[in-house]
């Protein structure tokens, strides 16, 4: 009669034997995926240095790198501010603010990012500027020319596409980051706000000095991930003819018909930036955890 398997064995399946071989276990835990990424980088450097067509493509496309970086940095900074305000609005005691915050987030989440970029840059921004101009003229007509001047200073034809792209990215990402901020603030126990308020601090002071420092610390990894995602999504601004690496690569490919060269190079560029930034985010996360 066969022995009945013990309860433990039936639940966890057959026992895995390592036979005390540290080499085998080290092989199985080695980050092969990372080696793969490094191989891609080495291969990219190799073809750029050895093949004329790739080197030309690289030299042309690299002029888009600063644009990609500054569009991402400015948009992310703006998006953080919008996200913080919208997140605070979402948990506000004011019915009006709460609804405005939720409305904004739901609208943005319900529209594809590409469509939003077109809409914000080509419809929303011009409408707002038109509105400001009209208000300025109305002020002018009513003898308030000194005030009207402020609203007439910006004209649609003077709003560069880069600025529209930044506004579009920031407004879009602000909605996602609002939810991150809201969750971060709500992760702080009620007692913290009560303790701060019981000392006579106002709601704003309690947020500023007690809740937000703790909340931001908690959500730093999530914010880092949003930043990495924004590096990638900044490629969408190429549809506005902003000369980021995606747009420059499209121009190069269209002109030279070297599609493989152009798109391989931007793919590797994005991959490199994203992997490096992800490693940085992990490092920061580990630092924070060590400090706790």
């Amino acid at each position: 009669m066969a022995e009945q398997p013990t309860d433990l064995e039936t639940r966890v399946g057959p026992k895995i034997e390592f036979r005390g071989d540290p080499f085998a276990s080290r092989l199985s835990s080695f980050p092969w995926w990372f080696l793969g990424l490094i191989l891609i980088a080495v291969w990219a450097v190799f073809i750029i240095t050895t093949q004329e067509s790739y080197r030309e493509a690289f030299d042309f496309i690299k002029q888009g790198i600063p644009v990609t970086i500054y569009i991402t940095l400015i948009s992310f900074t703006l998006a953080s501010v919008i996200g913080l305000m919208a997140g605070l609005a979402r948990i506000s005691r004011s019915v009006v603010l709460r609804n405005i915050g939720t409305f904004y987030i739901e609208v943005i989440r319900g529209i594809p990012m590409l469509v939003l970029i077109f809409y914000l840059a080509l419809v929303a921004v011009p409408s707002v500027v038109d509105g400001m101009n009209a208000f300025g003229e109305w002020l002018d007509g009513n003898g308030l020319g000194f005030l009207g001047g402020i609203f007439l200073a910006i004209e649609n034809k003077n709003v560069p596409l880069e600025a529209r792209a930044v506004i579009a990215l920031a407004v879009t990402y602000g909605a996602f980051m609002a939810e991150v901020f809201r969750a971060g603030i709500q992760s702080i126990g009620r007692g913290q706000m009560e303790a701060a308020r019981s000392l006579g601090m106002s709601y704003a002071q309690s947020m500023r000095y007690v809740i937000l420092p703790q909340a931001v610390r908690n959500i730093l990894p999530a914010l880092g991930n949003d930043f990495v995602a924004m590096v990638k999504d900044s490629s969408l601004v190429s549809v506005l003819a902003v000369r980021d690496i995606t747009q420059v690569a499209r121009l190069y490919a269209g002109r030279s018909f070297r599609f493989a060269e152009a798109y391989t190079i931007i793919a590797v560029m994005y991959l490199t930036m994203v992997v490096l930034l992800s490693l940085l985010v992990q490092l920061i996360e580990r630092r924070l955890r060590a400090n706790e």
Partner: peptide, 26 residues
């Protein structure tokens, strides 16, 4: 409220601040 000190069951100290900073903040 600034004239009314309150001490809670679960202390509710501000964990991101040192003891002294907890006392100086307000």
């Amino acid at each position: 409220r600034a004239e009314i000190g309150m001490v809670f069951q679960l202390f509710n100290l501000f964990p991101h601040l040192t003891a002294q900073e907890n006392v100086t903040l307000a």
